Simulated scan of single mutants.
Amino acid sequence: MVSRGQATAAGAEQRLNELGIALPPPPTPFGNYVEGVRIGKLLYLSGMLPVIDRKPQVVGRLGVELTVDEGRRAAEIATLSALSAIKAELGSLDKVAAIAKLGVYIATSGDFRDHPAVADGASDLLADVFGPELLSGRIVLGVASLPLGLPVETELLAEVAD
């Protein structure tokens, strides 16, 4: 178990620029909910999909229509949307003190077994942007289907710096 102490994500915005990553526009809900809710120092994000401007970027299930690499890319796109939602809510990614938890839901065939490799698309991006010291715990689940026929949905819980 890792104790975060006073670790901060100062420099996350700079790392985005250094990595040449441009965030997509903040996502908008596909139903009756909000993309994020801040309660005290915690920012809870709704599930994020590999969608940009309400257009699916990758469709299908892992182990059927999609490869592990395509699933990793879908997880990365969904996580970019999460970063965009965080920035819209907080004004800057530098206000994130920690990523407390990452959930990755993967639409798969029943015999697919490479869930961790797909989820690493999200984890690797978060480590690149916030630094490995803010890498979170995570849960990875295979599911029968996800909204809009998409292969991946990510969910984040972030701690907001004072």
Rank of each mutant, 00 (worst) to 15 (best):
F130Q: 04
G110A: 14
A161K: 15
A97K: 03
G149R: 11
R113C: 06
L93V: 00
L150T: 06
L146W: 06
V118F: 06
F130I: 09
L150V: 14
K55M: 07
A122K: 03
A78W: 02
P25C: 10
R138F: 09
D114A: 13
A88T: 00
N32F: 07
L16K: 02
V37M: 12
G40D: 10
I21W: 02
A74H: 03
L146G: 07
V140K: 09
G131R: 05
T67A: 09
L150A: 05
L157I: 12
G121E: 03
P147W: 08
A117C: 09
P29R: 08
S3M: 11
R138G: 11
A88K: 04
G5Q: 04
E76P: 02
Q14E: 12
P27R: 01
E153Y: 05
R15Y: 02
P50G: 07
P24A: 08
A144D: 15
P147E: 12
P26S: 08
P27S: 09
P24E: 04
V118T: 07
F130E: 03
T79E: 01
G47S: 01
A158G: 10
G36V: 06
R73S: 14
L125W: 05
E159V: 15
G47P: 00
A97S: 10
G149M: 07
K101N: 09
L102M: 05
V34H: 13
S3V: 08
G47E: 03
L90H: 05
Y44W: 09
R38P: 09
R54M: 06
L146T: 07
S81G: 15
V58A: 01
Y33M: 08
A161C: 09
I86K: 00
S46T: 07
G63N: 04
V64H: 15
F130G: 05
Y105M: 10
L148F: 13
G36A: 14
V51N: 00
L93F: 02
L141R: 15
T8R: 05
D120M: 14
A122H: 07
L90G: 01
Q6E: 13
V118G: 01
P50S: 09
V104W: 00
L66A: 04
